[in-house]
Design a protein around this nucleic acid. Structure first.
Lengths: 341, 341
DNA sequence: TTGAAAGCGCTAACAA
DNA sequence: TTGTTAGCGCTTTCAA
C-alpha cells in the first residue's frame, strides 16, 4: 500500500506541489503552460497517483459524498432502480452515494443522518419506499436535501414523485382502448397518496370515455397478493362481473390472477388485468405476462441526485422544485378485447 | 450550518484541544481525570459538537468507510438482505457502507473500486449476486477484502457462501419426511456451484433414504419462471409422475405451480413443491404459500463485514477463513404427504 | 508561469 | 493530569 501523494509526483516531475495541484485540477485555464501540465499529468499517471479525497475534502469543504437515507428501499425489491438511478447520477458528477436504510426505525434514522453529516456529505437524498407526504426531519434543516418518492408538507425542499393520477388514467384508457367498458378497480385500502390519486385517475378516464362510475366495481384490500385475491374474488363473483380489472399494484394483480384461476376465468380471454409497478419479478413471471404501468424509479432517483447536486453547486438560487414523472405502459399479455362487445 | 469544532469545545470548556480529544475518544483510560472528562463531554454535547470524520480520517489513516462493490445486488430483489446485514454490522462498529453496483460492467467496476480507494475506504466487501467462484480483481490486491457469496480460486482472501449441498439435502429430506419417495428435481442449467451442489445434495438425500436416483426425474431449465414451467411440464407429463418437486429456486417453483395448474394438479394435494431462496415476494405470494429453503443472506452480509473489520483492525494475523452458512427451512403450505402411499 | 507556505479539523508525540 | 505543537494530503493566497 505505498500510497503515492502529490509531493511524490512533484518530486518526480521536478516541480512544486502547487504546480502539480494546478496541473491536475485545471481550474483557471491560464495558470500553467500546456507543456508542464502534460508533463505533470504523465508523471502522475506513471506513478499511479490517485488523490486522497479525505484531504481534498477537508480542505475544500466538499466531500463528494451524497447520503441516501431510506426506509426500506435497499432491502425490498420495489425500488431498487431508484438507487441505481441515484448512483449513476452521482457517479457521473464525481460523487459517491452512501446509502443507509433504517428499516423504518426513526431513532436509528436520526443517528444515521448524524453519522452521514459527520462524514461531511455534501447533501442528502431522503427517500421513501413509496410515494408519501412527510414532514422533513429536523436534523436535516440547513442540509441540502431532496426528497425522493415523497413530498414535504411545506414544499420548502425539492422533491420528485410519480404522477399517480396520470398513471391510472393511462392504464384505464388502455383498457378502454381494448374495448372494455366494464372495468373494475382493485384499490389499496391504505390512506396514502397513491390510493387517492389512482382512484381519481380511474374515475377521470371513465368519465372522458363516457362510462359511468360504478362504486360497486371498486373494492379495496391490503396491497398484497392476498388482498388482491380477496378483492378480485369479491368483484368477480358480484352481480355484474367486469371484463377487466385495473389493479393498484402488481402484487394485487397477481392475486387477481389467482382469483380468476379459481373461478375458471382465463386471462386475458375472459378477463383482462392491468397492474402498476412493473415489478419484473412478478409481472414477467405471471402467465400470461402482466401488462402494467412502470413506476419511473430510475428516472426519479437520477433526477433527485441531479437536482441535489445542482442545489449544492449553486446554493444561491435554491428555488425548490416539485417534480413529477410519468409512468410508461409496459405491455405483456394480460390485456385483450372483451369476449362479447 | 455553524459547524462547531474541537477548538470551540476546548474554549467553552476552558481546556486544551488535546484534553477535548482525549476526553471524547478515551483511548488510554488513565489519561484524564473523570471529572474533566465528564465536563468536556457535557460541554461538547451542549454545543452539539460532532467530529469531522474527514479530518480524523486523514489524521488516523482510517476513514471508517467500508466499500461494498457488487454486480447487481442493489438493484435486484434477490439479495437485499445481504446489504442489510452488511450495513448493520458496519454500523455497529462505527462504520458506514458505501455501496456501488456496476451492474456487471467490469470496466465500470474497476473505476468504482478506484473511486472507493480514493475515498480511503478501510476495506472492501466484494459481493456477487449469487454464489460463484471468481478470481479476485487485481486492483484489490493489497486492500483488505472479503468475498460475499463468492469464493476466490486461490482462497487467499476470506469468503462466505451458503452451503448448497446441505440446503438441497434438507429440502429433499423434508419431502421424504412427508412421505414422498418419488421426487423430481427441477434444476438450473447454468454451470454454477449451486447447480452442482444442489444436485449433489438431492442425490445424497435420496441415497440416505434408500431411494434410487432416477435421472429421468431431474430436468433442467433456465432459472426463471418459464424455465421452471417448461421443466415441470416435462417431468409431470412423463411416464412416472413424481409426487413432489424440489426446485432450484422459488421462481422455478412458481413455474412448477403454473405447470401443475394447467395439468389440473392441485398443490399440495396432488403435488408437493419446495423451492430455494425464500424470495418473499414470490414465496409468500404464491397460493398456497411456497415452502422453501431460505438463503442466509443477512447472516452472510453481516459475517463478511465483521470478518473484514477484524482483519482491518489486526492486520497481523490475516488468516483468511472460508465460511459457509446453513439454509433454514421456511415452511408455508406447499408440502403435504402424497395422496396414496 | 511557477513556488512557498498557511491552514482545513483532528490526533498524538513530546513537554510541562 | 494537562497543554503545545507538528503534521495527515491537499488547495490556494500571495509573492516572485
Amino acid at each position: 500500500m505505498g500510497r503515492v501523494g502529490i509531493r511524490d509526483v512533484a518530486k518526480a516531475a521536478q516541480v512544486s506541489v502547487t504546480t502539480v495541484s494546478h496541473a491536475l485540477n485545471d481550474r483557471r485555464g491560464s495558470r500553467i503552460s500546456a507543456a508542464t501540465k502534460e508533463h505533470v499529468r504523465a508523471v502522475a499517471e506513471d506513478l499511479g497517483y490517485a488523490p486522497n479525497r479525505l484531504a481534498s475534502g477537508l480542505r475544500n469543504n466538499r466531500s463528494y459524498l451524497i447520503g441516501l437515507v431510506s426506509d426500506e428501499i435497499a432491502t425490498t425489491p420495489f425500488a431498487g432502480d431508484m438507487i441505481l438511478g441515484a448512483q449513476d447520477a452521482a457517479y457521473e458528477r464525481g460523487c459517491l452515494l452512501m446509502m443507509l436504510d433504517a428499516g423504518g426505525d426513526g431513532e436509528l434514522e436520526k443517528r444515521q443522518v448524524s453519522t452521514l453529516l459527520q462524514h461531511q456529505v455534501d447533501g442528502i437524498v431522503y427517500a421513501r419506499m413509496y410515494h408519501q407526504r412527510i414532514g422533513l426531519p429536523v436534523e436535516l434543516a440547513g442540509v441540502p436535501t431532496v426528497l425522493l418518492d415523497a413530498v414535504s408538507a411545506d414544499e420548502k425542499v425539492s422533491s420528485v414523485i410519480p404522477d399517480e393520477v396520470e398513471a391510472a388514467r393511462l392504464a384505464v384508457r388502455s383498457l378502454v382502448a381494448a374495448g372494455h367498458r366494464h372495468i373494475g378497480f382493485i384499490n389499496n385500502l391504505d390512506d396514502i397518496p397513491a390510493t387517492h390519486g389512482r382512484l381519481l385517475g380511474y374515475q377521470e378516464a371513465l368519465k372522458e370515455s363516457g362510462i359511468e362510475f360504478d362504486p360497486a366495481l371498486v373494492v379495496a384490500g391490503v396491497p398484497e397478493t392476498n388482498g388482491g385475491r380477496a378483492a378480485a374474488m369479491d368483484v368477480l363473483s358480484g352481480p355484474s362481473r367486469p371484463t377487466a380489472l385495473f389493479c393498484f399494484n402488481d402484487q394485487m394483480a397477481m392475486g387477481a390472477y389467482q382469483a380468476a384461476g379459481s373461478l375458471g376465468l382465463e386471462i386475458p380471454r375472459d378477463l383482462s388485468v392491468i397492474g402498476i409497478d412493473n415489478l419484473e419479478l412478478i409481472a414477467a413471471a405471471l402467465w400470461p405476462g402482466l401488462t402494467t404501468m412502470a413506476l419511473p424509479h430510475y428516472d426519479m432517483g437520477r433526477w433527485a441526485v441531479k437536482q441535489l447536486l445542482n442545489e449544492i453547486e449553486k446554493p444561491d438560487d435554491v428555488e425548490p422544485v416539485q417534480m413529477m414523472f410519468d409512468c410508461p405502459l409496459v405491455q405483456r399479455g394480460s390485456v385483450a378485447p372483451p369476449l362479447q362487445i
